[in-house]
Simulated scan of single mutants.
Amino acid sequence: MVIDPAARRTDGESVRIAKDVLCAGAQTKICLPDGPDEVERALARRGARRPVVVGDDRALLRVVELLHRRRELTDATLSVVPVGGPATVALARSLGVPTDPVAAARTVLDGAARPRDLLVDDSGGVVLGGLRIPSGPRTDPPVRPGGHEPHDPHDPHDPHGAGAAPPSGTVPSAGSGTGSDTGPGGANGHRDRRDPGASPPGDGSQPWWTPAARTARTALTLLSLPVIGLTSGSRRRVHPPPPHRLRIEADGVLLTDLDRPVTRVSVSTAGPDDGGLAEVVVHPHAAGGPVRALARAVTVSGQDFRYRADALVRGPVRSRTWTVLTEAWTLILPHRT
C-alpha cells in the first residue's frame, strides 16, 4: 500500500480508515514515501504484491506512468483508494472507483479486475481518461458587486495598492502603515483635524491616537471589507478560449488544418465496444458542429499549445502523437450489479 504524502497531509483520517480496513482484510505492507524516487523504489520491491495507491489522481497517474516506463504495467493489477477533494479525485471517480474510503478499501479487497485501454504519447506520458486542448478556460479575478475590480495590495502599479501614492490633497491617516507614526501627527508632519483628546466611539478610556486604539480601528476596518470570492455578489468572468491553429490527424486522415482555427479538441479512450480506439472531437471556431472520429493514433501539431491530460497540464509543445494501447493496464473496480 503506497500512501501518497499529500493524502497524509490533507486527510489523515481517511488514510487511517483505509489502512485499518485493508490491514484487517489482507496481509498488507505499508509504504510511506516522501517523494517520487521512494515511490519508484517501493514499486520495484513489491514482488508479487498488488500495488494499492492511497491518494489523489496525481498519485495514481504517477504510479501508472512509473510502471509503464518500467514495462511492468501490463503485469500489475492496480487498486486505488481516492483521498482528496472532489476536484482532485475526479479521474478516479470517472473510472468507477468509489470515493468513500471504506467503500474504496472494500473494493480493493473484494472487487473485480477490469482491463482498461491507455493513451500513450510520444514523450512517454500516459492518459487514463482523456485530454483536452487548450488546458483550460482563461478567467479574470472575481469582480466585486458594482463591477469594481479587486486591487492588488502588493502591486506598485495598482493605483490603490500599497506602493501607490495617496490621492492628491489627502493625508495618510494614523496607523495607515506609511512611514513611522509615533505621535498624534502623521508621518508627513500633518496632524489629524480631529481633537487629539477625543476617544473612539463606545470607548472613553483611551485617546483615539494611541497605538491600541489605532490597532482596534484598523482591525475593525479590515473586518468590514468584503472578502473576494465569499461575497454573495462576487462573480468570476470566464472568457472563451482563443482559437488555435492546429493540424489534427486521426490515423493519417486530416480532420482540420492550420487554416481552419479550432476552439477545443478532446481525445479520450472510447470504451470496450469500440475495439481499442480513441474518440477525437474537434470543435471548429467557425460555424458548424464538431468533427468526430475514432482512431488508434491521433497527432496534433501547430503553434505552441498546452493540453490537460487527466489531472496534469503539459506543454507547451509543437507536436504530440497519442496512441491507444488496448487493455494495457488493469484496475480493481466494484462488481457490476
Score class of each variant (00 low, 15 high):
V2L: 15
I3F: 05
A6I: 14
A7S: 15
C23Q: 15
A26R: 10
I30M: 11
L32F: 09
P36Q: 13
D37A: 15
R50D: 09
P51D: 05
P51G: 07
D56R: 09
A59D: 06
L60K: 02
L60S: 01
V63C: 03
L66P: 02
L67C: 03
R69T: 12
E72Y: 07
V83D: 01
G85V: 13
P86K: 10
A87D: 14
A90P: 00
L95Y: 01
V97I: 15
P101K: 04
A103K: 13
A104S: 10
R106T: 04
R106M: 12
D110R: 15
R114T: 14
R116M: 14
G125K: 09
L131P: 00
I133R: 01
P134L: 02
R138A: 13
R138M: 12
P142I: 06
P142E: 06
G147S: 09
G147Q: 06
P150N: 09
P159D: 07
G163I: 08
G163D: 06
G179K: 08
G185F: 07
H190S: 14
D192V: 04
S199T: 14
S199F: 01
D203E: 07
G204Q: 10
S205C: 07
W208V: 04
L222H: 12
L225N: 04
G229R: 07
R236D: 04
P240L: 03
P241H: 09
L246T: 03
R247S: 11
V262S: 01
V262P: 02
R264Y: 11
V267E: 01
V267W: 01
P272H: 11
H283C: 09
P284M: 03
P284E: 03
V291Y: 01
L294Q: 02
R296K: 13
V298P: 00
R318P: 05
E327G: 12
T337M: 13
